[in-house]
Amino acid sequence: MSEQNAPVAISFQQVFTSFSIKKERSTVLKNITATVPKGDIVALIGPSGSGKSTLLSLCNLLHTADSGEVLVEGVNVLNWNVTELRRKVGLVFQSPTMFPGTVRENLALARRLQGSTLNDPESLLINVGLSPDLLDHDASDLSGGQKQRIALARVLSTEPHALLLDEVTSALDPSAARNVEEWILQIHAKERTTMLWVTHHLEQAQRVSQWTWLMVDGHLIEATETKRFFSSPQSEHGQLFLQGELSGYLT
């Protein structure tokens, strides 16, 4: 990809990944080589089924590549202590999973798994734009947008160096989506957390990211500066995708 000399947070080197579905092996990632610069936001776009979520899941080792290497902070993910890696590289899912109990208990979850306690749940909530009054509410009573922000805050409680965001706003109504997006950007402004952000919302990609990666059918077609991608995509696929003529959803 581009000519940056900035330090690299996550890097993929000739990565292939496949799944077996009904005894048939299908390759979902085909020779991915790219780097996520430290402190930047990369938007990952492409038609559904192009392998975006799989690429994310390689970074925190929820899946393993068949071949090639995935490096986080210069170290192959296979050589990381798995739980340590997952705390350093937080993942926020499309639909937030709340566990039975209060907001406070949900926020403290990641720390409890580590065997420690969460000292300042109030500031975590404020950090994602929620009132500390919510702490003792039942987590299942919250709205979708609130749950997603709790899920985000829960991941942030482990003080991750990088965040993987898997269509985190696509299950939300437009105003909640915008709200979650803004709070993520605020966190980025404050912490300079590296982010790999899967979205099918092209305007969102344009708003939030410095870099845009276009994936089609397991291939990384284009990886370039967001401004450049949206003004003059270099690949034919990129042009088609922006025109909404590539299979998959577009705004």
Partner: peptide, 13 residues
């Protein structure tokens, strides 16, 4: 599955 994966992703064993 989703709950288990969420816990794993949070650094749970």
């Amino acid at each position: 599955r989703q709950e288990i994966i969420t816990l794993l992703a949070l650094g749970g064993t």
